[in-house]
């Protein structure tokens, strides 16, 4: 049998295979070039960037928990101009090689999201799509606060939709996902990334202090994978736009689970950090699984879960 078709279309973002990377776990892509040729991935998603640079939160920004990590990076980023200056040339080259570059957009308010999207429009011709992060658990305003209600989420996308023709993905918070997804679809979102890290807490019982510099942080890793699979399945049933599955993907089987639950593409997150060559391994395991399923197109397996 010839190799199966792995190409997918994530709301207008053409990917030569379903493997994407999760924002914040992949820098701006070039950090991985010493380990493998990044262009073999279907897409990469760059760290969330705002119109202006953000310093992020104080240390400690990470603690390890059972089967995962919690982080409170707080969307430290160089701003859209900084991204373009430092990484623009690399990202253009990556896009020229056929890997879709998805740029994540951060903001504390609707106005800040608008300012960032306008800058991306002006300065980032390499962006195949923009992913709007309305679900960061580590910032005081914006982020999770806006993404957790259908009205808050809709307000952001309503303001952004007229300002760009590029595909708009929305990174969703793990809360009220069906209602929020429907609201986002109604405002013209092209695809949904489900889910961001889950707001969580870890306390050092000896010192009675948070193990991060803030009381709470975002939980990532295999511990949340099955929650994410359930949410992807619920969202995929509720809307017609495609879903990018995110959460605890450590293997090709984890990626396959998302696809069966209804995801068109899958982002590798924490796995990149603990083992930098994870994403291409997960891709090759996914290809083997598609072959083993006896289909000649991965698209035939999207949502092919049976109960």
């Amino acid at each position: 049998m010839s190799a199966p078709n792995m190409a997918v279309d994530l709301g207008g973002i053409k990917m030569h295979n379903p493997i994407n990377t999760a924002a914040g776990t992949y820098g701006f892509g070039w950090q991985f070039e010493g380990f493998y040729d990044v262009s073999q991935l279907g897409a990469i998603t760059t760290k969330g960037c705002a119109a202006e640079a953000w310093p992020g939160n104080p240390k400690p920004r990470m603690c390890e928990v059972t089967s995962g990590v919690m982080n409170s990076v707080g969307l430290m980023n160089p701003g859209v101009r900084g991204l373009v200056e430092q990484s623009g040339e690399y990202l253009q080259g990556l896009s020229d090689k056929g890997c879709a570059v998805i740029c994540q957009v951060a903001g504390h308010s609707v106005d800040e999201y608008v300012a960032a999207v306008e800058l991306f429009e002006e300065l980032a011709p390499f962006a195949a799509g923009l992913e709007i992060n309305i679900s960061c658990p580590n910032i005081a305003a914006g982020g999770c606060a806006m993404g957790s209600t259908p009205d808050g989420a809709a307000e952001v996308i309503r303001a952004l939709r007229p300002r760009t023709d590029r595909p708009l993905l929305v990174k969703m918070a793990p809360a009220r996902v069906v209602e929020v997804a429907k609201a986002l679809e109604a405002e013209g979102a092209d695809a949904l990334s489900v889910i961001n890290s889950i707001p969580a807490m870890s306390i050092d019982v000896h010192t009675r202090r948070s193990r991060l510099s803030r009381p709470t942080g975002g939980l990532s890793g295999p511990c949340l994978h099955n929650i994410a699979v359930r949410m992807v399945w619920e969202v995929a049933h509720a809307v017609d736009i495609p879903v990018n599955g995110v959460g605890g993907v450590m293997s090709g089987a984890d990626a396959a689970e998302f696809i069966l639950a209804g995801a068109t593409s899958v982002s590798v997150g924490m796995s990149n950090l603990v083992r930098p060559d994870s994403a291409p391994r997960i891709l090759s395991e996914l290809v083997s699984w598609v072959e083993e399923q006896g289909v000649d197109d991965v698209n035939d397996l999207i949502g092919a879960f049976e109960c």
């Binding site: 820098g27 920004r61 990470m62 924490m270 990149n272």
Partner: peptide, 13 residues
């Protein structure tokens, strides 16, 4: 506290 050790995550600043 380092998560990646190669510049990808910004947990170590």
């Amino acid at each position: 506290m380092m998560t990646c050790g190669f510049g990808a995550c910004a947990t170590c600043v």
